[in-house]
Design a protein around this nucleic acid. Structure first.
Lengths: 335, 335
DNA sequence: CCGCGGAGGGAGAGCGCTTTCTTGACATGG
DNA sequence: CCATGTCAAGAAAGCGCTCTCCCTCCGCGG
């Protein structure tokens, strides 16, 4: 293994016949260096293959040029085949790339993992922290915010301290979907709600109610946790309690998919007997049988916007405390 | 914004009434410190909320305690609804957490992105680099390896320089699947192969041939790129050229899923008329119609093993140059 | 001809940590 | 009772970089 002693500023300076300070100026794009010297330094840099030592730079600048993206580990399992996890990451990665910053991914599943995230982020090892898909009222984002560490969440955080966030219009999207069901003549519309310790779960249920209550229709709710299994169970329960239901709004496509199958297993035709609409617009939605109508949310855009907000925050610029992106009703064949 | 001047070693040392060196020893778990002093230091650390500055530590230790995971950006799109992307990440994250190291995620989609990855990794800003799902003969892993930077790939890299890798037994898994089709009486077995610039694509095709050739059966191949669209196209082409086919092995579940739908659209029953087997065992596979038989690969385990190998490499321990994990034939209803 | 202003470049002081070297304290053996 | 050995803890030297002075040099006006 060639230890390949990598060149330092010093080496470049010697080679270019200037001082370390000048090399530093050139590397960091200061304008106060005369063009010939500038050029000489650049040549030395190339010849030596100089790459700045970020640790050393960090030490003095107090910046790390990296941001953490924290996801509950469950997200990688629960949402395993929707696009949430990769979508957020891609969006964030794109924006960070443009800003030449690194993405440090942290999965905070176990209590130990959570503790680790806390230690790492409060230790100011990153310039900011992105929280995706928070469960319950996690105190960490608020705590970081109070420490003056830039933080942005996906989804309005449930904790006490207000933290900037980016979210989609769950309520509007869902109530539009349910209204569509009502408009097409459905009168016995049930919902499979998501977990009520997540903002998405709560608001999608609110959206359902927002459309049903004014219409004076009965509200039938079963709860799931966004997964297929829970969707199947919930569908069976709804069917048992309300055999006459003629539509189901499911708070996730995964649950909607399970509903589709469960309905068919009990001899119902979709959409003839029962209409089904989901939420997310995962890729699979277009390939279910029948293809699933759903509420699309711009996941990648969420990641992008979160990151943009965070970078602004880190740069000391003011930002709006909440960004809400639109959702879109995608009508396919199921409802 | 409280700048909250965070405490340094110096501060802890003063508070505990010892020298910086001693605090450093305690923090890093050296055994040569007497228990009472040890305890005093620990108390000071807690009271002050001291967290070591990693940049400073890095500067002197020459380690960064972080490793990069590089994925072609396409992976987050192409594999968007299989578990590859999240699976590798979870596996890697688990092992890194145990080792208390950070995961720096880099998406190398564009040429610019690739250049950025190269700059970052060759700059020794990480202790090692994990490459997932390489396309073509990327020279970067080999180059890093030659620079003495620990590297591990998922899937045997196609480049010239040998690089340690972790992969699954594509050939064995596929040929077992195809053999199963043969054993159940199928004689006109086509395959939808994956991209031939990826090791997985190549070897799954080899596995098909490995079972077909000895059986003296005709080999019918159409190429896709692992996506559903390509699977549908390939199925139509196969059907047009070989209307009498009675089985299809698809190199990905996504393509197999599309095959299922395309076959049904042309009036074929699965598995009565045509059997279908896929590869991956994505979650959706259990929910297709009919449920898809497939070759399961332990994705998360790949991520874990890659990381383990990398950490060994970084620690200067010897590792075996290739780890091949077993695949498993999962029989459902489609074939 | 002298003084002054401004711009370009260098010297040097750390940033917070690890680690070697050294010292001091104490116990043991001759 | 002194020499020797052992072990714990401190002093101090950087790791590679940025950035604040400060100096030098040049051009120009009085």
């Amino acid at each position: 293994m060639t230890t390949a002693q990598r060149p330092t500023l010093e080496a470049v300076a010697r080679r270019a016949g200037v001082s370390r300070a000048t090399v530093s100026r050139v590397v960091n794009g200061s304008t106060t260096v005369a063009e010939p010297i500038r050029e000489a330094v650049r040549r030395a840099v190339t010849e030596l293959g100089y790459v700045p030592n970020l640790a050393a730079r960090s030490l003095v600048t107090q910046r790390t040029d990296s941001v953490a993206l924290v996801m509950p580990e469950a997200a990688t399992r629960v949402f395993s085949d929707d696009q949430y996890f990769p979508g957020i990451i891609r969006g964030a990665a794109q924006e960070l790339e443009a800003a030449d910053k690194q993405l440090v991914l942290m999965l905070a599943g176990s209590p130990a993992g959570h503790e680790r995230v806390e230690r790492y982020t409060t230790g100011r090892h990153v310039d900011g922290v992105l929280f995706a898909s928070l469960h319950g009222a996690d105190p960490l984002p608020g705590r970081l915010a109070r420490l003056g560490i830039p933080v942005v969440c996906s989804g309005r955080p449930l904790g006490g301290t207000p933290v900037p966030y980016v979210d989609v219009d769950h309520i509007g999207g869902v109530s539009r979907a349910v209204q569509h069901l009502i408009d097409s003549g459905r009168r016995h519309i049930a919902t499979i709600a998501g977990p009520q310790d997540m903002v998405g779960g709560i608001e999608r249920l609110t959206g359902y109610q927002a459309a049903m209550t004014p219409a004076g229709l009965p509200e039938w709710v079963a709860y799931g946790d966004f997964t297929r299994e829970s969707g199947a169970t919930a569908t069976r329960r709804l069917l048992a309690e309300h055999p006459d239901l003629d539509a189901i709004f499911a708070a996730s496509d995964l649950m909607a998919h399970a509903a589709l199958r469960t309905l068919r297993a009990t001899g119902r035709r979709v959409p003839d007997d029962v209409a089904v609409i989901g939420f997310d617009d995962i890729e699979t939605a277009a390939y279910t049988d029948p293809p699933l109508s759903t509420v699309r949310q711009p996941i990648q855009e969420i990641g992008r916007r979160m990151t943009r907000q965070l970078l602004r925050l880190a740069a000391g610029e003011p930002i709006e405390p909440a960004v809400v992106l639109p959702t879109e009703l995608i009508l396919r064949d199921s409802g």
